[in-house]
Amino acid sequence: MKYFHFGKKLLAADSWLHLYDLTLALYESAAEAAYLTGNFAETSDLVEIVLQQAKTVLDKMKVYEIKIKNYQSQNKPLVAIKIP
């Protein structure tokens, strides 16, 4: 997780505009790593950032998968299937 935190700090404030692919990949990977380490709150925060910034439905697909797994891991299956 330290590498992802460091990578996010290195990004410029406008990285979603000028380095979209890199920023998307970094946030997706950070969200997945947070999920895999059991940090559910950070996972949710990162997923929401991607969902707000992503340009297309395809760009959102990976984080929706992470979001569903995150809820399933917390034994919240009904919340997981309500994702739009």
Rank of each mutant, 00 (worst) to 15 (best):
M1Y: 13
M1D: 13
K2I: 13
Y3K: 14
H5P: 02
H5K: 11
F6M: 07
F6A: 14
F6C: 04
F6Q: 14
F6D: 13
G7H: 01
G7I: 01
K9A: 11
K9M: 08
L10D: 05
A12K: 10
D14H: 03
D14C: 08
S15Y: 05
S15V: 06
W16P: 11
W16I: 08
L17M: 11
L17Q: 15
H18N: 15
H18T: 15
L19I: 00
L19D: 11
Y20D: 10
Y20F: 12
D21N: 14
L22F: 05
L22V: 07
L22G: 02
T23P: 09
T23K: 00
L24F: 07
L24D: 06
A25P: 01
A25C: 04
A25V: 04
A25W: 09
A25M: 05
L26V: 13
Y27F: 15
Y27H: 09
Y27N: 03
Y27W: 05
Y27I: 03
E28V: 09
E28H: 12
S29A: 15
A31S: 14
A31Y: 03
E32S: 15
A33H: 09
A33W: 07
A33V: 10
A33K: 12
A33M: 13
L36N: 14
G38T: 08
G38D: 02
N39K: 10
A41Q: 06
A41H: 04
A41M: 03
E42R: 10
E42C: 02
T43A: 10
T43Y: 05
S44C: 01
S44I: 03
D45G: 03
D45K: 14
D45H: 11
L46S: 07
E48T: 10
I49K: 09
V50W: 06
V50C: 02
L51S: 05
Q52W: 01
Q53P: 00
Q53E: 12
A54F: 01
K55Q: 14
T56Y: 00
V57W: 09
K60R: 15
V63Q: 05
V63M: 03
Y64N: 11
Y64C: 11
Y64I: 14
E65T: 14
I66P: 00
I66F: 05
I68M: 12
I68T: 08
I68H: 02
I68Y: 04
K69I: 09
Y71F: 14
Q72F: 14
S73A: 15
S73H: 11
Q74H: 04
Q74Y: 01
N75P: 00
K76V: 00
P77G: 02
P77M: 10
P77C: 02
L78R: 13
L78T: 05
V79S: 02
V79M: 01
K82I: 00
K82S: 11
